[in-house]
Design a protein around this nucleic acid. Structure first.
Lengths: 122, 122
DNA sequence: AAGTACAGGGATAAATTTATCCGTATTGAA
DNA sequence: TTCAATACGGATAAATTTATCCCTGTACTT
């Protein structure tokens, strides 16, 4: 495991939430799971830009943080289903609002993001 | 400047919002600015865990993304004030909810975060 | 016997983000 | 003249996060 060297900030609510949801795919995973997409393979199909490996890592972190839990069916081939815990459910309204805000402002956001790729005028 | 090598995802609202608010101190900065703490020095006093340098970098990014803007007074010693743009204001309700959620669940969150620091049982 | 579906994770490289150190500039006060 | 206050950013090191590559295992199908 990776051994952390810098202290984790946990002063205020904003520090705490950052620790559990600021991962590249965490809000996406929570969103899809909340929509009933529960199996790892299905999640990966819905987030094709992410590798399966990274999704597993982030799912494990969400599980460690108790935002999701999983049910492992004892069968072959394997079958696993993720679901939101009560804590996970409680954050969904906010994540949905975040997604909505991004959609509502997508034109603006795409514009400012594109500027980052452009080299400074020569 | 740093030249990005991997593509930026911008498919959905969740991708977009991640790009503009998922920085270590961005939600904190937006919060304090929304509370009327507008000068760089004051912001730094409110976020002592962050170095001044990092705050400047993140403030510049927020400015590039047009969530904040600044007024530079033409005087000596320098005086600068940041304020939220309309876009920045529009996201504050959600950031406040995030902070509230973190506060409401701080006990749980601190517990799971602490587990990360503990080495696996020998 | 070989291929497919399914889920998982070790090892390591690469990319990105943060941290640290230090220097610039101006005016007024001690 | 030297120091404090104020803000800004270059250069580089360190830390952290993501990306890549590849291997394990079981049961069913062809």
């Amino acid at each position: 495991m990776y051994e952390r060297k810098l202290p984790i900030q946990e002063e205020c609510g904003l520090d705490l939430i950052r620790e559990v949801v600021f991962g590249k795919w965490k809000i996406h995973l929570l969103y899809y799971i909340s929509q009933g997409i529960s199996r790892p393979g299905q999640l990966q199909k819905n987030i094709p830009e992410a590798s399966r490996r990274v999704l597993n890592i982030q799912l494990n972190q969400l599980e460690d943080d108790e935002l999701v839990a999983k049910k492992v069916y004892d069968q072959q081939p394997p079958k696993v289903e993720y679901y939101l815990t009560d804590l996970g459910k409680s954050i969904m309204p906010i994540i949905n609002e975040l997604g909505q805000w991004g959609d509502d402002n997508s034109e603006h956001l795409r514009r400012v993001i594109k500027k980052r790729l452009v080299l400074p005028e020569a």
